[in-house]
């Protein structure tokens, strides 16, 4: 039982990092940015490469995050901005971002091969501890620590002036623009930050499990589910959703069967969607 809780915590941390970025983008740009999974995967592969070349973990993660941020800039600058000029509907964005995910995922597969890769982690992180019947590794502790750190940073950022602009853009794009807020620059910032988080999460996930080209897809899926559960665009709700999803996943692996893990999580969310379309915590 304690093991399930501990597993849920790590699971939830990973989901949370991706979900927050996703939620942030949705709040501001008002569409499901499936390309988020692309940066998640890119982050994983960059971390893999850097660790392979012998760098230390912190460096690898930071660089992965920065490269992820750059990818976010690219997606916004080259694709989404153009769609925005045309006042495209959210469905068009959705399909376009799906295209991005497919392109990036398959590029990674072509470059690195479709098989899974294991990241080389220093042995210090491999050692495990046992606490009241639950087993966890130092790596997992690090994941939680990084998650908490980044999430706190995010919330601090949202209180800054730029964060204020971001929030006002989310609330009322028209009015924000009228007040002189540079929408294009804000969008770049949003995608940059969100993608940074996703990329770091990808690196962390890679360390926890393995990396493979399709990881972007499953990574985003759970993030989306967490956001939807907590109410799209509601950041606090996203945290709650991630925790719940982490628990659901770990519980279903332990108590039911591992191969049904995805389906069960999906069914939980689907039922929730049908019953309470606004999410557990209603977003304003």
């Amino acid at each position: 039982m304690a093991q399930v809780l501990v597993n849920s915590l790590f699971d939830a941390s990973l989901i949370l990092l991706v979900a927050l970025g996703f939620s942030l983008v949705y709040r501001t740009a008002r569409f499901f940015h499936l390309g988020h999974g692309a940066t998640f995967a890119v982050g994983g592969y960059v971390t893999y490469l850097l660790l392979f070349l012998g760098s230390n973990i912190a460096f690898a993660l930071i660089v992965a995050g920065l490269i992820g941020g750059l990818c976010g800039f690219a997606m916004e600058g080259f694709l989404y901005k153009r769609l925005r000029r045309r006042r495209s509907s959210s469905l068009i964005y959705l399909i376009a971002s799906l295209g991005v995910l497919l392109v990036v995922q398959n590029l990674l597969a072509l470059l690195f091969g479709s098989e899974t890769h294991v990241l080389q982690i220093p042995e210090a992180l491999e050692s495990s501890t046992r606490l009241s019947g639950a087993l966890f590794t130092n790596a997992q502790v690090m994941i939680v620590a990084v998650a908490i750190a980044l999430v706190s940073l995010l919330f601090v950022f949202l209180k800054t002036r730029m964060g204020l602009f971001l929030r006002s853009l989310s609330d009322n794009p028209f009015l924000a623009r009228a007040m002189g807020i540079d929408v294009d620059r804000m969008m770049l910032a949003v995608f940059g930050i969100g993608s940074f988080l996703a990329a770091v999460a990808g690196g962390l996930t890679g360390m926890e499990t393995t990396i493979r080209p399709a990881m972007g897809f499953s990574g985003t899926l759970y993030a989306m589910l967490a956001c939807i559960m907590g109410g799209m665009g509601n950041l606090a709700g996203t945290i709650v959703g991630s925790v719940l999803l982490g628990v659901a996943r770990s519980a279903s692996v332990t108590f039911i069967a591992p191969e049904w893990r995805d389906s069960i999580a999906l069914m939980v969310v689907l039922i929730l969607l049908f019953v309470k379309p606004g999410g557990i915590i209603r977003s304003s």
Binding site: I92, L98, G99
Partner: peptide, 11 residues
């Protein structure tokens, strides 16, 4: 990859 590219270009 081509499918994804097609989607992007079409959109």
């Amino acid at each position: 990859l081509l499918f994804g590219l097609a989607l992007i270009l079409f959109m």
